[in-house]
Design a protein around this nucleic acid. Structure first.
Lengths: 168, 168
DNA sequence: GGCTGTTGAGGTACAATATAGCGATGGAGG
DNA sequence: CCTCCATCGCTATATTGTACCTCAACAGCC
């Protein structure tokens, strides 16, 4: 793995806390059950701002004595996806927490190939350009996957001096 | 698999022919070698306008006596991707032929969950909305994945009467 | 000719990701 | 108390993708 460090040092503990309490609120409002397992999985997804693979979650779940199996994690992730608490990053086969789960939406992501960080956008101009183009083609839009790979501000600055090999 | 038929009956043989002769031209111009294997794989990708999985290609390759192994197909696909002759559809883990390989680009796709057809767009408004949003975030854009799931004109018309279950 | 480096291809084995299906549990509502 | 049903644990298996080694073909060179 390349060296990956967060481009800035923010108070990540509060990211996690906020995410969990919002998840509580959202689920309570909808009558969805945020069980222990689901909460733990959500917490693990939020351990960083890098998308996390299902099997990473799996192995970290195992830490507390019990051994988990893939379906356990995938079911929890399915619940979290359905309730907009996490997004799936298709181009990485990985999952990332959603910072604004109140209104479910298709995510737009900036994926830095330098530090691995995923940043979610909610850009209205993109949304309307997409839905305009689709409806001009007579297409009824459902879920939109938008994933932009590149370099974040911090990594682009670093890479200017020492360009990095293609980070697949 | 759900019932999947092309929304219109066009002369698909000429699609394939055009794609192959454009591929020839592009490779000749770049000094890239479109070998027999690579041409066959490209042809198989173009058998329809639905994205094709690597293992589908693999089994169809086997039809002509010889048995192929996964790396064979993945290597050919890698070549075709690098030369812009096919695109990868991340949300389907599948590949589709590019109708305009002369100028390499990140594809924008309409993916019909009714008939499975992938339609490529090249919408400048989307492109500029995306790169504007990225650069406002200080992000240096690399490859962009845009995949819009929904119903094509034909399937939306059909589904109006008999809505279809979630086609994952 | 014979040597050697490069590219493409075949193949085995395996890694990584994801799902099917079945049985157990435990809380909500009758 | 009892049934229903969502949740969870588990085994097995499917699907997708790679690491790595070998060999053949061909070009350039001595």
């Amino acid at each position: 793995m390349p060296d990956r460090r967060p481009p800035d040092d923010h108070d990540h503990a509060s990211c996690i806390e906020d995410a969990l309490s919002e998840a509580e609120a959202v689920c309570a409002e909808r009558g969805a059950r945020l069980t222990d397992l689901r909460r733990r999985v959500l917490e693990l997804v939020w351990t960083s701002h890098e998308p996390v693979g299902a099997y990473d979650i799996l192995s970290r779940l195992g830490g507390d004595g019990r051994r988990a199996a893939p379906p356990t994690v995938y079911r929890a992730l399915e619940f979290l996806l359905e309730n907009g608490l996490v997004h799936r990053i298709e181009s990485l086969n990985a999952f990332v927490g959603c910072p604004s789960p109140k209104a479910p939406h298709s995510g737009q992501f900036l994926l830095c190939t330098g530090c691995g960080t995923a940043t979610e956008l909610t850009d209205g101009a993109i949304q309307s350009a997409v839905s305009d183009a689709a409806s001009r083609a007579g297409f009824r839009t459902g879920h939109v996957t938008l994933e932009i790979k590149g370099l974040c501000r911090h990594c682009a600055g670093t890479a200017a001096a020492k360009p990095r090999a293609h980070a697949h």
